[in-house]
């Protein structure tokens, strides 16, 4: 068990790295999908650039949330300074705390991209319906926000545990 405790920091760091990596990758793909659809619309009607840009950027937030979780975890586990003496169990708990952001961040970004692309199509046909069209992809954001909140609470909570 003593030997395993050396790997606590590894697990915690892995969780933090994945929290930045996975939602970041998904957001990159999602924003790219929005950008491709946006380029198609702009090719026909350049005046829609502003509206299309907002819809393109919506699924980019998961990458930012992932970064926040990674940053908080880094600061809690001592990677950014302080003690990095973390038991194996605590390291595993940090890893588990990052999981909501890793998993929900990935899936919600891709799903939100689908909704954004569909809304970009709506804006292409009915620019005056931009407000309504924006709500549909924005609704997907709810679950990314829930995931980031849970991860923040969990990471902060794990820090206070004496294990």
């Amino acid at each position: 068990m003593e030997a395993l405790n050396n790997y606590g920091i590894v697990l915690a760091l892995l969780g933090a790295a994945l929290a930045a990596l996975v939602p970041g990758m998904a957001s990159a793909k999602a924003v790219s999908m929005g950008g491709i659809a946006g380029a198609g619309v702009i090719a026909e009607d350049p005046s829609l650039f502003g509206k299309v840009l907002i819809l393109q950027l919506l699924p980019g937030t998961q990458g930012i949330y992932g970064l926040i979780i990674a940053f908080i975890t880094f600061s809690q586990i001592g990677v950014l300074g302080g003690s990095s003496d973390i038991s194996f169990v605590k390291g595993a708990l940090y890893f588990a705390a990052c999981l909501p952001m890793i998993i929900v961040g990935y899936t919600s970004a891709i799903r939100q991209a689908n909704a954004s692309v569909a809304s970009i199509g709506t804006v292409a046909k009915k620019p005056d319906q931009f407000g309504k069209a924006m709500i549909f992809p924005a609704m997907v954001e709810t679950y990314a926000i829930l995931a980031v909140l849970i991860s923040i609470l969990a990471v902060s909570g794990v820090t206070g545990l004496n294990i």
């Binding site: 491709i36 659809a37 198609g40 619309v41 009607d45 970009i120 199509g121 046909k125």
Partner: peptide, 15 residues
């Protein structure tokens, strides 16, 4: 293939 670009342009063309 998802044809995202093509479908977006077609959406405008449908007008």
């Amino acid at each position: 293939k998802q044809y995202i670009y093509a479908v977006a342009r077609i959406r405008s063309k449908e007008l």
